[in-house]
Design a protein around this nucleic acid. Structure first.
Lengths: 224, 224, 224, 224
DNA sequence: TAATAATCGAGACGGTACGTCGCGTCTTCTG
DNA sequence: CAGAAGACGCGACGTACCGTCTCGATTATTA
């Protein structure tokens, strides 16, 4: 899911209720944010309550704003003030547990790709071990708006990292120049995505990224 | 999604309410099925109403049994008599529009793989053209019971076809024998799945199956 | 409040949700009322819960549909199916505890008026003794729609009884014919209404109706 | 409502938040009221906003503090600093539009009573013509605290005027001495109150006070 | 002049109720 | 008996106000 995304259909978070003040332009008005400022503890309490409920095994579809508000000791309006709906809330929640972007070694395209796929593998594993991630992710394969938003804010940036690495590889001669770069990206990413997203439960052994990268680089036809 | 599946977790349809009368065992009581027999038109009317609603752009999550019953001119209880819930209803609906398994030419592994991937591509296109399939499928990436059932009855058989073809290729020397066969399968299937399931909107040109098969067979590293 | 009403502004209960089927015209269609019939116990349970809450001292304004539904073990929708809102519900509740119309002796206009005012006095007393009526009535002096509906369905009929009795009195010579009959009615009714509605707490002694009737008949100017 | 009141139950405005500084006791500390003094325009802006909303036809029950604050361009806390709640606010509002007590001619009891009833009639008309007063008053037949406060500060004083006039009439021989003076008061006041408070919409012709006074003085039984 | 203190508009806060909708079950009448 | 119709208890939806609170800014008095 890391090197990969098809573009930006639309981002529901753009209409999100303003949580942080926008970056102030140099000459722009300071926009003093009048009224009582939003409580810092709320975000945190809401996330904690949602996580607690998910860890209790409640499926995502049954997670109501009402229950979360109750569990967090928070008014419903306070939640709606921050997020327009359930899906946007979960996008933020997921982002809050998402590990940072991997740092590419840059020594070779092969190493870069292995690093990127390794990040994919690790998230696949985390999804499986963490009760939370397992629950959320396995069911998030629905909720198209949630899915799209996650794609756009988390996945797409990493996909660009992969495409950049591949373009460098074409320049250095490590990657064939006669192939569509997007297709090549899919060749590397597809196998891991299949195992993490579409077929949860498939093996994600430590050597998998290297195996995939080497196999795609060399091809599966016998060298003869 | 065609060559591919991770196994059969469990099939919720096994507990499905009997749609057709069970085949009477030889020595078993004839079970005369007294009372008014089930109307034949119901199934059809329910499917038609569901499809009509989906074609109107209503997302799967907002499709209530209530709306379907209303649209079909059918009582809610009549639907619950046939299917335990929304998901099971849609499993039946999807199965009713799924094209038959492709026939492999058997001339070579390459041809077989291209044929299987072409079937994948066509379904991806159908998903995109048909308002119905696109809607259901893009959102079905959820509803775990619906997803599982679809896997089990549609995806898994085709996955076995792919694995069988690859095993033949190893025997004939067309495929390297030093690689895990499941991994090789993912190398072929992954790219197309990425574009049909995970990243709807990506191009699915007619030559795509051949490009993928040839690239994976030959590798993306320059031949030098 | 008995002889008295100003007419029929509009009756909100006319738009009330149909509780009983309308009286069937002779040749009209039977209107079979399909579907599950409304539960008989609901009305009763709702009234009981409302009365219980009012007897607990909860003011009318704080009596929410939500609380009533909770207390009656009934869904909110079930209440909204029968009454469009809080006010209509209470009109029905009040009607269910309203004593029947008094029977006029007909021996003389004086006796008829005393009987009607006695009914007014008794309701004033009931309002004071019954915890329920006291609470509802003392606060119902608001809620204009509730007030109007009560007027129209309970008060207006009795007002007509009073006007009829006075018209008879004019014919028999017991009442001056040179006065507006509506004004005369107000002369009798006004004093009791003042003490029951506007000035709760004022004395309502047993002899009051006779005192009022005799004083209005004879006048308060010394006979000399 | 003018000659009439049953007493002073209790005045909730006594616990009202201090609007004006309390009268300084002789030896008490001057209590210099430090800090920014209350803005003078607030009271006025709040009243104006409330009146504007009522004139737009919003019923009293639907008039929220929130709406008033919004309409007045005033913070909610500023309102709560001055009045404990909606009812107390409206007591002040009503008092600010109440006409002054009538001046009794003193020529005769009949003239005094006509004057008092004329004041009642005029307020009844104002209630009907002015969109504001009509709305507030017709619905104020509720809100017990509002009702009580209004009684205590507006109605009760005029009631005492009426009782005093009647006592003078008993002394001058214009009024029978064998009747309860409170009852006699109700005989005069009741008919007008019925038409202004309980039965809005009833006619309030200019001659009505004279008709009522004369009819009650002379009685409705034919003189023969 | 500087510190102090109560006010102001604004709006976030935890709550409660609103009236609607869908859930899955049930209960009636009609075929 | 099956079927449509629809009432039932339940619970979530997203909105509106409640009355309280916390902000920065304003405006007086006191030191």
């Amino acid at each position: 899911m890391s090197l990969d995304d098809g573009g930006a259909p639309e981002d529901p978070r753009d209409e999100r209720h303003p949580t942080a003040p926008p970056v102030p332009g140099v000459g722009a008005a300071p926009a003093p944010r009048r009224g009582r400022p939003r409580s810092e503890g709320v975000e945190e309490a809401v996330f904690a309550a949602a996580v607690a409920l998910l860890e209790d095994g409640i499926p995502l579809a049954d997670l109501s704003i009402e229950k979360i508000a109750r569990g967090a000791g928070v008014g419903k309006a306070t939640i709606y003030r921050r997020w327009p709906g359930k899906e946007e809330l979960f996008v933020d929640l997921l982002r809050s547990v998402e590990p940072p972007d991997p740092v590419l070694p840059g020594t070779s395209v092969r190493d870069d790709l292995v690093t990127l796929l390794e990040a994919l593998r690790r998230r696949g594993l985390a999804k499986r071990t963490s009760a939370l991630l397992h629950n959320v992710f396995s069911q998030m394969q629905s909720y198209p708006r949630l899915w799209d938003a996650y794609h756009h804010t988390v996945i797409e940036p990493r996909r660009r990292m992969g495409l950049d690495a591949l373009r460098r590889g074409v320049e250095t001669g490590e990657i064939r120049a006669d192939l569509d770069i997007e297709l090549v990206n899919d060749l590397f990413v597809g196998p891991l995505l299949v195992r993490t997203i579409i077929r949860p439960g498939a093996p994600l052994d430590p050597g998998l990224p290297e195996q995939v990268v080497d196999a795609v680089l060399a091809g599966v036809r016998p060298p003869g």
